[in-house]
Design a protein around this nucleic acid. Structure first.
Lengths: 140, 140
DNA sequence: TTCATTGCAAAAGCTTTGCATGTGT
DNA sequence: ACACATGCAAAGCTTTTGCAATGAA
């Protein structure tokens, strides 16, 4: 997603385009992988930005709603987010012997999950599927 | 897992078998589905137990290490756990708004995964599928 | 002008910890 | 007796919020 879309989002919601929000989204444009709010705040601070922690925290829900980032996981103590990426979703098979990771994608699987969600009245947004086992080489 | 195994675990680790740990594990034996530490504490309290919150929190890592429970997910604010059960495998839908957890099981899904594994020459042993999204109540 | 937004500091919510006391082994 | 456990209250961490001041539209 590009910055422009975020600006439009703000507009349609009657929200304002501020220096702080600009700084935050610019920082995220240069970010790869996961981040947590405090990390983001500190990176900005180190670059000389005056954005406050509060504003970072307050901006996150907006970024999520606009589809710019998504929550990945709550681990030990803090939430993690990542940019919604352009690259296609995929799942993982992980070999517990050699650590090999196979990425795969199955439209059938995706559809099936969608059906299962509907059955439960659940609106699926994101999923993670990890299959642990042994790869070809390790299973002989 | 039965209580007995937990007792053995304590023994081998040089830990002590206390009234509090007994009460906690008994409560968990009667528990179905997920729980969070505070919930567990309150249930015990309502039953007249004098176990403190601190002890509940301190016991959780031990229960995990012994394989009696496992962490399911950290959603909105608190961690969730569930008994490692003898019961059939299932997957989870987790509402990121209210934390509700729906357990589901789909033979079709299991079979499909089996097929996908075969295609990759992978021998699947165990898998985890978590679908994050919004439950019926939270999605309106 | 008007209302969203900001920074600050205080509050809140969950979890951990220090310490004196109690208790299994 | 010795080490581990417990309860309590205080501290820790992440996140949220009240409020007065600021700033975008």
């Amino acid at each position: 997603m590009e910055k422009q879309k975020f600006r439009e989002f703000l507009l349609t919601k009657g929200l304002k385009q501020t220096k702080e929000r600009e700084e935050i989204i610019n920082e995220l444009m240069n970010t790869k992988g996961h981040f947590d709010p405090d990390e983001l705040f500190l990176r900005l601070k180190n670059k000389g930005s005056k954005v406050s922690r509060a504003s970072v925290y307050r901006t996150i829900p907006i970024l999520i709603e606009s589809g710019f980032i998504e929550q990945v996981e709550k681990t030990d103590r803090h939430a993690h987010y990542e940019k919604v990426s352009e690259k296609q979703h995929h799942d993982h098979m992980i070999c517990t012997k050699c650590g090999k990771v196979i990425e795969f994608y199955s439209p059938t699987l995706e559809m099936l999950q969608e059906e299962l969600c509907q059955k439960e009245g659940f609106k699926g947004i994101k999923h993670t599927l990890e299959i642990l086992g042994h790869c070809k080489k390790c299973s002989q």
